[in-house]
């Protein structure tokens, strides 16, 4: 019955309310005041004092943006790890149906699908997208940070989420490099590791997390992960029906060592575009082979040493 997030990037308006609400609720300091030139993103990524982060990706005129980021032209099967088709502007065209009321005798627009045409505003910017995505700790099924933590500071709490107990963490920093998504980080002046708590404190009081609460468009939806997953699939279906066939879920149906993410996303471009790995690995998947290989080497080298002692003396 894990609780988590479904973050639907097609509903994000990039208002950053989530980012601010998180900072306010958790009383996190600002990260500094520097213009990055990365579109409207000046907080750059998740870190010890930024637990929600809104990414901005300009893909206008099919040219990629001027900041050095290139929107991949040949997605589909050709680009690295791409699993989606390129570039449909969420451009819903033609006129919607005239078919009256919603059954309650009330006025209501009725959805009529699918109505997507190729972007006819092409005379100007061509195919225009300005993608926005609110990133957060994924609360992984197999969480690298949790597995790595040598103090047991990181636990899975009663809501199924990955939580760092600040009174136990000793700032070893190992979790920060064990997270396959670059989420958890050490706060330098405090010396402990921090990340999204999935508003453990609020959840305990039956409140929804601050970021979800603040999101004006329900781009961030909080709830029971299973229920969210169902809703998210329905959403994918609806978007496909409308012609946004790029839409897919990231983190809901994972076939990776990390497994499903309690905070999963609906994306419309390949994961790398959003600074997410195509196929994340939980580092601990390597732990047994690494131990075994080391042990075998140990055996071999031990044997060689023994041999050296047994045989090597002869030379003298």
């Amino acid at each position: 019955m894990a609780k988590g997030f479904f973050t639907d990037t097609t509903l994000c308006i990039g208002c950053k309310a989530c980012e601010v609400a998180c900072k306010q609720w958790n009383q996190l300091p600002a990260d500094g005041y520097k213009l990055t030139g990365m579109s409207y993103d000046n907080t750059v990524g998740l870190g010890a004092t930024t637990w929600r982060h809104v990414a901005f990706i300009e893909q206008l005129g099919g040219q990629g943006n001027v900041n050095g980021h290139q929107a991949s032209e040949q997605q589909g099967a050709t680009a690295i790890g791409a699993n989606i088709r390129r570039n449909t502007t969420i451009s819903v065209d033609s006129v919607i149906g005239a078919n009256g009321s919603d059954g309650n005798g009330r006025y209501a627009a009725v959805l009529e699908a699918p109505r997507l045409v190729d972007d006819t505003t092409g005379g100007f910017l061509g195919q225009n997208r300005w993608l926005m995505m609110s990133d957060v700790c994924k609360h992984c099924a197999n969480a690298g940070c949790l597995e790595a933590c040598p103090t047991g500071a990181i636990i899975r709490n009663e809501f199924g989420d990955v939580y760092v107990q600040p009174d136990i963490c000793n700032g070893c920093g190992y979790c920060t490099i064990a997270c396959p998504f670059g989420v958890i980080d050490i706060q330098q002046d405090d010396g402990r590791a921090w990340k999204c708590t999935l508003c453990y404190d609020r959840q305990k009081d039956g409140l929804e997390p601050a970021c979800a609460k603040a999101c004006p468009t329900q781009s961030i939806q909080f709830g029971e992960v299973d229920e969210l997953r169902e809703r998210a699939y329905a959403r994918v279906g609806m978007l496909h029906e409308r012609g946004v066939t790029d839409a897919y879920l990231y983190g809901a149906d994972e076939n990776t060592s990390v497994g499903n993410l309690n905070a999963f996303f609906l994306l419309v471009d390949q994961p790398q575009v959003y600074n997410l790995p195509e196929k994340p690995h939980v580092p601990q998947a390597q732990v047994i082979p690494a131990y075994v290989a080391t042990a075998i080497t140990g055996l071999a080298l031990g044997a060689a040493t023994i041999a050296a002692f047994l045989l090597g003396g002869r030379r003298g």
Binding site: G81, A82, Q218, R235, Y248, D253
Partner: peptide, 30 residues
């Protein structure tokens, strides 16, 4: 390090679209 082939890490967008249950008649999202 985290490369994968299409569909390897998760169903492709197309597959997910097919997998998605049909939408109920009207379900407002926002």
């Amino acid at each position: 390090l985290t490369r994968g082939t299409p569909g390897e890490a998760r169903p492709t967008a197309i597959e997910q679209g097919k997998q998605a249950p049909q939408l109920p008649p009207h379900r407002s999202h926002v």
